[in-house]
Design a protein around this nucleic acid. Structure first.
Lengths: 243, 243
DNA sequence: AAGTGGTCTAGACCACTCA
DNA sequence: GAGTGGTCTAGACCACTTG
């Protein structure tokens, strides 16, 4: 490992980015478990043969990427995305108290297939590539508020169909498969409830609903999940933040 | 200036944050004009009596806050928010090609008044505080797509009513008044077109429309503009990005 | 008291831009 | 070739947390 870094030290890619990749690989590979502490700055710097300042730059970057949490006086910890705060970070739906809503799954189906035209576009797949598709209905405080259709590249989730107790949030599922997530982009638009959607919400067919078209990407920017969600907004609102 | 920093060096507020504030003040105060270059790192570090590393940390922060742009080999420049890219940064509406849409104003009205209950809430004002209210209709590619009602704390924009050619985007208006902007938060929901809104869009009264409730905040987090926008989405979409 | 991350220093060298 | 920001070093000291 030190070798790889030393040998590519002259390859023009900044050291701190190489360090980030090496450390991220330890998380993705399961060497460092979610929730556990990692060695301190100076030990890591010594191990990789770099200065503490450079190691710090890599660690700071990883904190910004939500891979790590650093706490003064305590240490540096691998983020466990199995937590209310982190598991809901790609959900812009909020309850009246302002907390992010991720909802519980009432019913779910999994089917396999080959990528549709739209799936190829959103997931950057080629026709013929395999996908897993989830259909889920979510509720919150005993109210059904969202139905979603999610598609995942099958290549990234080997053996998913054979699993039992499949996580119903992409963030948790990705963590189980050692996939590190980066950004997400969501298109929001207005739609009319299809008969089946209207029925699950108990509203009139054709009623206006909010449509969410979201792509979650890996740390490298490759798409990992495409989700279409149809949302019946009561006692909740959608909130976007900008800088 | 150097004095202020030296004397508060022991006040437990990190030096690089004090530097950020001092440099931001030079921009807000008009000492450094939008678009112009500022002195280089080492000159600034020498002027403030800090190391280049600390000055760099302040400058990097300011770049992340969109106050500066740094370009290797060229220099560091004060951002001019009078540009397509920056002026539209708080607009999540996108044209079919993916570019942010800010639209041109077809008609605008300005009236003064005292803060309503909702304005007090969103702008953190007290009953009786004065506000400016703008009512605008925006179009893009010859199509009316948005009508908005914006409220601004009058205290932040002295003499606004007497101005001619008032900028129709908060980002540009804020720059003219030396207000540095930070983040914005936008609530997205579904609504029904009121008769007057329906008329300007040329749609049936009661048609479903997208409602945008946005607060733009200053660098310090204080609200600077509250805007309610009613949007008729055709050939456009709303896009939120998450990290 | 020991250990951690957070801040700060005073340099060096590299990559890039431009006259 | 001169000047800029970008990376990197090898330390020091401080603030905070915990046994």
């Amino acid at each position: 490992m030190g070798d790889r870094i030393m040998s590519s030290r002259f390859l023009n890619r900044p050291l701190y980015l190489q360090l980030r990749d090496a450390l991220a690989e330890r998380i993705a590979g399961g060497e460092w478990k979610p929730g556990s502490a990692i060695p301190n700055e100076s030990d890591l710097a010594r191990e990789f043969g770099v200065s503490t300042g450079t190691m710090r730059k890599a660690l700071d970057l990883m904190e910004a990427e939500r891979l790590l949490t650093r706490r003064q006086g305590r240490g540096t910890f691998v983020n466990d995305h199995n937590s209310d705060e982190l598991a809901a970070r790609f959900s812009n739906l909020r309850a009246s108290d302002g907390s992010r809503v991720c909802g519980e799954v009432k019913s779910a189906e999994l089917i396999q297939g080959t990528a549709s035209e739209m799936e190829c576009k959103r997931l950057e797949l080629r026709p013929g590539d395999h996908v897993y598709r989830f259909h889920r209905v979510r509720h919150h405080q005993n109210k059904v508020y969202l139905v979603e259709d999610a598609s995942l590249p099958a290549a990234l989730f080997p053996g998913l169909a054979e699993k039992s107790n499949i996580a119903d949030r992409i963030i948790i599922l990705a963590q189980e498969y050692g996939l590190l997530l980066g950004k997400a982009a969501e298109r929001v638009s207005l739609g009319h409830a299809s008969p089946s959607v209207a029925q699950t919400f108990g509203i009139a067919s054709g009623s206006p609903i909010m449509v969410l078209d979201r792509v979650v990407m890996g740390l490298d920017g490759r798409p990992i999940e495409w989700r279409m969600a149809y949302c019946h907004l009561v006692d909740k609102y959608y909130m976007a933040e900008m800088v």
